[in-house]
């Protein structure tokens, strides 16, 4: 009985989702809403299955851009986080600009970047890096500051070099914060890719959605949305898996 209640608790969100979908399905047929305004969930699923080859083609581009952009953002965030943490001068000179840069409306950049870098993959990757870099570097920097000063003193008393202290003490301490930033960025990565494709591209889910929207194939637009949701979810789960693998000491705290 207890087990049953636990399973019910865990799947209660799924139940809510099912209920909402049912309401949507019934609502659409009850009010006789035409498919070019709002298709029913079953129609969206139909569309997904019918055009799956085209969707896979565009999804692969979006996924590639997102993974490349996110990976670059991680590498950049680690390097810049390391530098800013260790060079206070650089920190005071750069950190405020970093925060300020987040106030630039991204959609404008998405429009302007193709002017400078063409209609290929490069401007998309730049947008994704810009979006994903910030949450990672900020949380990484915060994580590095969480280290107990007594711990640093202990390592100093044992004659540890700065690099050894960073590697053995600071980096592991900062990892959980780093991962919570990465988790946010992982969800942003797909979104950023889609937005930059929406503005101008030759392939990708964003591009596909603009095409379908212009021909009033709303079921196709929403089908792409489903794909985007699933992709974002998978990205987050990959980050969680990395988190699990890289921090064995944190494992039983990770159970949600």
């Amino acid at each position: 009985m207890k087990k049953f209640i636990n399973t019910a608790k865990k799947s209660s969100a799924l139940f809510t989702l099912g209920l909402l979908l049912l309401l949507w399905e019934k609502g659409v047929s009850w009010y006789e809403i035409p498919a070019y305004i709002l298709p029913a969930p079953t129609q969206i699923l139909d569309g997904l299955l019918k055009h799956h080859q085209l969707l896979i083609y565009h999804t692969s581009t979006t996924l590639l851009e997102a993974v490349a952009g996110l990976s670059l953002a991680v590498i950049l965030a680690l390097i810049i986080g390391f530098l800013l943490h260790n060079l206070r001068v650089l920190y005071t000179a750069v950190y405020p600009l970093l925060v300020f840069s987040q106030t630039i409306p991204l959609i404008v950049l998405a429009v302007l970047l193709p002017l400078w870098f063409g209609w290929g993959v490069l401007p998309k990757i730049i947008i994704i890096v810009l979006v994903c870099f910030f949450p990672i570097v900020i949380s990484f920097l915060n994580g590095l500051d969480l280290v107990d000063p007594d711990q640093i003193n202990l390592f100093r008393s044992m004659g540890a070099t700065k690099w050894a202290t960073f590697k053995m003490v600071k980096l592991p301490t900062a990892l959980p914060a780093f991962f919570s930033g990465l988790r946010i960025s992982a969800t942003y990565s797909i979104m950023a890719a889609v937005i930059s494709e929406w503005v101008g591209a030759q392939r990708g889910l964003g591009y596909y959605m603009t095409l379908q929207q212009k021909s009033f194939a709303i079921d196709q637009v929403l089908g792409a949305v489903v794909v985007i949701c699933v992709l974002s979810f998978i990205m987050v789960k990959i980050v969680d898996l990395l988190n699990f693998l890289l921090m064995p000491w944190n494992r039983n705290q990770l159970v949600r």
Binding site: L154, M158, M168, T173, W249
Partner: peptide, 27 residues
């Protein structure tokens, strides 16, 4: 000058990321 004697505090200051054996072999 550091490097001759280390010290121990009220706080154990063990690194949570390392096993006990790896913690004690740090020096």
């Amino acid at each position: 000058r550091t490097g001759r004697v280390s010290y121990m505090q009220q706080k154990d200051l063990l690194l949570p990321s390392r096993t006990i054996l790896d913690n004690v072999s740090i020096p």
